[in-house]
Every structure is written in C-alpha cells, then in structure tokens.
C-alpha cells in the first residue's frame, strides 16, 4: 500500500550526505550542521504533532540538553561529541519522561500554552541562576571525537557536520519506521478522536506521552549539537521565540514526510543567512510571510508536494460529515 524507501537505502543516503560534506565550502558546512540539528528537534515536534499536539516549549528540552552537556563537559571534561549527544538526549529524555505524562491530558492551545509556560519557567530559573552564568550563560571547549581533538577549524567543522548529519539521519530513519508502525497509526488516531481510541482499549495519554518522550529526546540531542556548534550556552535556548522557530520548521515540513523536515530546516537556514547577508533585519519578516503562505497554500506542509497524500487529494466532499440528527445525550 504505502510505499517508501527501504531503511538500507536511507542509510546509504545518510552516508552519501555525510561524505558530500567533504566537498562543501566551510560556510555551507556550518550552515548544514545547524540545519541538521534544527531538523532533529523539529522532527520531534512533528512526531508529537501527529498526535494532534503542538509543543511551543521544545526549548525546554533543547536547553536541558544543552546545559546538561555544558555542565558535564566543564565539570568532568567530557568532550567527546558522540558522548555529548548521548548526554544531551538523556537529559532531554529524562525531563520528557517526567513532564510527558503530566501534560498528556491537555489538548489544543492548552497543551501549547502549558509547554510554553514550562519552558519559560526554566528560562526564568536559568536567568536567575548565577552559578550558570545568569543571562550571559557560559562557554565550553571544542568537542573531540573518539579521543581525537581537532585543531584545524575546517576539520572540526566537518567532524561536527558528520556527527550531526549521521545522528539526525538515523533519527529520521527511526521516525520513518515509527510513522509506518502500528504505534504510528494509533498516534494519528489519537489526533482525530482520542475518545474513540480510549473506547478501543488503548490509552491516548500513553500514546501521547511516548511521542512526547521521543520529541524530548530529539530536542535534548539537538541542544547538544547547538552547544557544540556555538561553544556557548545561555538562557535564550529556553526562550519561547527559540521554540517558535522549531515549530516553524515543523509546520513548514508538515507531518507526512521525514525528508520534508530536512528540506524545511535547510530552507530556513538558507533564508536566514541570505537575509542576514543582504537584507539585515528582515529575516523574521520573510519567515512570517513564508509561514502565512504555507498555512494558506500548503496546509499539510511542503511534504505534501511530493508525498502523494494517502487520500487527501480527492476531496472530502464525497460525503458531507454526519451531523447529529438528534441530540447526542442523554
């Protein structure tokens, strides 16, 4: 029925993209690194959005991952890039494990508001904590990889690019498998009618919590990448506008295609760097217009351009939705 790339083909693709980094000029390399890292957190938002819940507070897990890695790096001298990603994912995941079940029962804007509130609580705490540098944050050293340290900045950039592309690539493959799975289908069902899901003996809250956890893990790992790329962290990681940007990538991508998330993230970074270069102070403007355009003309994201959507093409007009002929209760 649904066709898609075989996981092995996807692995080959990831390998190709990684090697292609050798040929890229330096500026594209760091741009692609950020795009991959942003794609990872946006992918988490997409995973969660498939249950119908949009998180406006992924900055919480992003910052948790970033600060967790930064602290461990500075305290115990853990500089290995892969280890840092794992630590970041673990920090995000642990937080997600605690918060997910607490907020799974909310929906719609309440869900959005609550995630936003929690990230702002964290932001407020970070600004206040002088031990963590307050609103200025603090710096961390260059990451290493498997005991190698990179003094040549070009090599360091490529290392970071490779690690982020590989990690994000594998997260993408995992998400593809997840979307096609039994659990992935049930997640879509939750979005449409969570009450019926409960009536079928499934727990909508559990399904949301698990998706939330996955999103939090992705966000934490993404925070680790952002930290490695900037070698600096500050409370801005948790601020709501940071989360908003990731939501932007997720909306742009839509929730049908994992590849769309990467395309959207790369497009965003390109727009950002070009407008920074040529039209200062307009990139948010461009972003806003873009977002409106996507919502208006591509309500299912750019993914709908090449995923011949399951059934949406033919219109819903075939049968008008049933309305209650009589009052439903009592």
């Amino acid at each position: 029925m649904k066709k898609g790339l075989h996981p092995l083909v996807m692995i080959a693709l990831v390998a190709m993209v990684t090697l292609a980094g050798r040929a890229l000029p330096t500026w594209t390399l760091s741009l692609a690194t950020i795009a991959a890292s942003n794609a990872l957190i946006a992918l988490g938002i997409v995973v969660l959005a498939r249950t119908g819940n949009v998180s406006f507070g992924q900055g919480l897990f992003f910052a948790a991952g970033g600060y967790g890695v930064a602290l461990i790096a500075n305290t115990w001298g853990l500089t290995d890039a892969v280890a840092q990603v794992i630590v970041g994912a673990a920090c995000g995941g642990l937080l997600g494990l605690v918060i997910g079940p607490l907020i799974a029962r909310y929906s719609g804007i309440f869900f959005g508001m609550l995630t936003l509130a929690l990230s702002m609580v964290f932001y407020g705490a970070l600004v206040k904590s002088t031990a963590l540098g307050g609103s200025d944050g603090f710096n961390v050293g260059r990451p290493s990889l498997f005991g190698m340290s990179f003094t040549d900045p070009r090599e360091a950039d490529f290392m970071l690019y490779a690690v982020s592309v590989i990690v994000t690539g594998f997260a993408g493959i995992a998400a593809t498998i997840l979307f096609r799975s039994e659990f992935g289908l049930a997640s879509l069902a939750v979005r449409e009618n969570n009450l019926r899901v409960e009536y079928l003996g499934l727990s909508a809250n559990r399904i949301i919590s698990i998706n939330f956890l996955i999103a939090a893990i992705f966000a934490g790992a993404s925070g680790a990448f952002a930290l490695m790329a900037q070698r600096h962290i500050d409370p801005q990681f948790a601020y709501w506008t940071t989360s908003g940007e990731f939501v932007f990538v997720a909306v742009l991508a839509g929730n049908q295609s994992v590849a769309a998330v990467f395309v959207a993230s790369m497009a965003l970074e390109l727009v950002r760097s070009f407008s920074n270069l040529y039209l200062p102070n307009t990139w948010q403007l461009v972003l806003g217009v873009f977002l409106l355009g996507v919502i208006l003309f591509l309500p299912r994201g750019i993914g709908s351009l090449w995923i011949r959507d399951r059934h949406r093409r033919r219109h819903i007009s075939a049968t008008p939705p049933l309305t209650a002929e009589r009052g439903a209760a009592p």
């Binding site: 799975s181 039994e182 659990f183 879509l188």
Partner: peptide
C-alpha cells in the same frame, strides 16, 4: 466515531492494536 482521515482497514487496524498489552513502535 471513526478516524475519518484513515482508511477503513486502518481504522480496524488501530482497533486491533488495542488488543495486545503493548504496541510495537517498529
């Protein structure tokens, strides 16, 4: 009370997923 964006078979698949104690993510 159906999942209107899913197909008929998918609707039933979701229902069938509800039988077990654990759903597969893979």
């Amino acid at each position: 009370q159906l999942f209107v964006e899913l197909t008929a078979a998918e609707n039933l698949t979701v229902a069938i997923s509800g039988i077990g104690t654990r759903m597969s993510l893979r």
